[in-house]
Amino acid sequence: MAESATQGRRPDPRKAWQKLMERWLKRRAPIHPPLTLVYRQIFILPTRFGWMLGVLMGAMLIGSLNFNNNLGLLTTFIVAGLSVNSMLIAFRNLHKLSIRGGMARPVFAGQTANYQLSLQSVDQRPRPSLCLRHGKDLVGVDIDSASAASIAIPIATRWRGWHRPGRMRIETSHPMGLFRAWAWFWPDRPYLVWPQPAQQPPPLPDSGGSPGGQDQRQPIDGEDFYSLRQWREGDPLHRIAWKASQRHQDLLSREFRQEQSPELVLALEQAPARDLEARISILTAWVIQAEQQERTWTLRLGSTELGPDQGPAHRERCLRALAEL
């Protein structure tokens, strides 16, 4: 399902057919969110059960006509009316439904991305029993009047990089499962898949010097100013904060602590693997480790260099760069 942007494609008749359909639909109405569904995009056909009921209705019709049985006919026609209304209601359930957004939080390759869309009823009519179908995956949602609903469809990921989810189908068999109304659309906002982190990565480069990063985060001394406290016997003179002491008419001394360990440089060449993908995997694992240990690191990918920096935001930048590589 997840068509890959970075990996090679092979010609696929199904894909060609989809392209054709996409082009045809595109001429009728917008097919990329944000869009609001109107009659041009909505298709309706009976479900299997609908066809079955149709056959049953035919039998009832012929029987009642033959016996000239008017109440039998009335029953038949009530079923016909129910079917017609079923069709109209299914249509109405999609008509003027707006589909917006379309994005997924990045995940590591192999994980499931949750592609999110938000659905809203433009005319504030409640929309029960909507289903979003993407390939074999199916997710349902009800929209109460007025409020919008967010719907997330799981997408299995395999390769790193930016991907488009391909076509999706919003459908409904409300109210009686006789008819299914549906509309196709192609969310064009891509989602990012980070590389898969290596299962058992080698230790961080240069981490030999200071093993067990825990000690480094509780140092007694350091270079960064940490706080001011009451002077105690034994505090060195140069630690006395004279200015502050004067303000508070008391002897205060300064506390320092070392917050960070030495800087890390993570480079593609350093990763001990031959294959590019394997190296990227190792780097990915390193980046995750570095962030977990709250270290500052620089990621070097060929000529581009990210950092030095730290924190989750830096991690995401790095992972994205690795995904796009």
């Binding site: 006509l65 016996f67 000239n68 009335l74 026609f77 016909a80 009316g81 209304n85």
Partner: peptide, 22 residues
């Protein structure tokens, strides 16, 4: 739903051609 089916049902009832012979 049944009530809403009546307009169509009654239209058909009145206008559906009947068989003169079985």
């Amino acid at each position: 739903m049944v009530a809403a089916a009546l307009p169509v049902a009654l239209t058909l009832f009145v206008l559906f051609p009947r068989l003169a012979q079985p």
